[in-house]
Amino acid sequence: MPCQSKFTAVWVACLVLAGCFGGVMHEAPGVTPGVRIEWGQARSATGCALDYAWYRPVASTPGELVVLAHGFLRDKARLAGLARALAEAGISVVTVDFCNTRPWRGNHARNGFDLIAVADRLEARRLVYAGFSAGGLAALVAARNDPRTLGVLTLDLVDARELGRLMVQGLDRPVIGLFGEPASCNADNNGLTTLAAARQARIERIDGASHCDFESPTDWLCRALCEPDRAGAEQRRAEILARSVTAVRSLLME
């Protein structure tokens, strides 16, 4: 936990220095024809609005949905690349902005239930929950508490107070975890210990990957904190996107 606490404090400091239900349908710019995006809101049990972007391929299976969660103090734009890759593969996916996270408190359990609220809003029947960093932790919470879950994909998972470990011990669905190199930004790969407690877990390592490589796109802030060497980042990001699509496809076949 010391590494995670140190990262959280540095991350918050850098952010400080850096100073309607239903949605509207639009063509998704830069996405394969036949994919549309619906922007809308669901409501958290705490009353705040959960903004989402729903990538809807014409060829997707009705009722199937991937719910994709961003990392701590990030936003859904940081996973737009993965959402597009999934949508271009014919998979319906929604990215969500958490509304209950605070710099001093992640509210990861609440975030997990907020992911379920978005799935309910979109009337999903067969679900894969997925997330990056602390978003992977929220995905585990959602999966553990949603009987519609087929499986979970975590991207460089970061656990907090062993919440993820508690969730996977009671989860009877498969979990696929993609991990980069151990560093302070992923709490020295503490997510590996979390998934070791899962009943059904598959670990895939991305050699040389930094925490930022799992965002698509990332930004200068993540690079400044978590990516000392950018060499090969684009190739690693492409590999992560390809592996993520393959992983989600396998989970949807459960």
Rank of each mutant, 00 (worst) to 15 (best):
N111I: 08
G170D: 05
N189I: 01
G232W: 01
M1V: 07
A49M: 14
E123S: 08
P2I: 05
Q235E: 08
V67G: 11
C3N: 09
V158N: 08
F132L: 14
W54E: 14
R125D: 04
V66C: 08
G34H: 05
R78A: 15
D146A: 11
L82M: 14
I240Q: 08
E215F: 15
H70D: 12
L251V: 05
N111S: 13
G30L: 09
L241F: 02
A18H: 12
L195F: 14
L155N: 04
L15D: 06
G90M: 09
N189Y: 00
G191I: 00
L163G: 00
G112R: 08
T95Q: 14
I240M: 09
G191Y: 00
A109Y: 07
A197P: 00
R173L: 07
R173A: 15
I91E: 08
G22T: 09
G63T: 02
T46R: 15
E215G: 06
R36A: 14
G180A: 07
G22E: 13
G30P: 05
L150F: 03
N145K: 03
E27A: 15
C14G: 12
G151W: 09
L68G: 07
A87I: 08
F132W: 15
D114C: 06
T218I: 04
D51G: 13
A130N: 03
S92E: 13
R84D: 11
E239I: 00
R74F: 12
L122E: 12
S92L: 04
R173D: 13
T193A: 11
V158S: 09
A109E: 12
T246E: 14
R165N: 01
P2E: 13
E64C: 08
L140H: 02
A87W: 10
S210G: 00
R243S: 06
R249N: 07
E239K: 03
R105P: 01
L195R: 01
G90W: 02
Q4R: 15
K6A: 15
G136K: 03
W54I: 04
A231E: 06
W39R: 13
C48H: 11
D51L: 15
D229V: 09
G164W: 01
L17M: 09
F179N: 01
G106P: 00
F113M: 01
A187Y: 06
P182H: 02
V248H: 02
R148A: 06
G177K: 00
P228Q: 05
A80N: 11
R78S: 15
Q4L: 14
L15E: 08
N190G: 01
A80Q: 15
R125E: 13
R161Q: 07
G71E: 04
L166W: 03
L150Y: 00
R173W: 04
L68F: 07
A124M: 05
F21D: 13
D75T: 10
C48Y: 04
R144N: 01
L171V: 00
A83K: 06
S92D: 08
N190E: 03
V93P: 11
A53R: 12
R237I: 02
L150C: 10
G131V: 05
R236Y: 00
P2W: 06
D146R: 09
E123F: 02
G30K: 06
W104E: 10
A247R: 04
A83E: 14
G47P: 07
A139N: 07
R36C: 13
T154L: 06
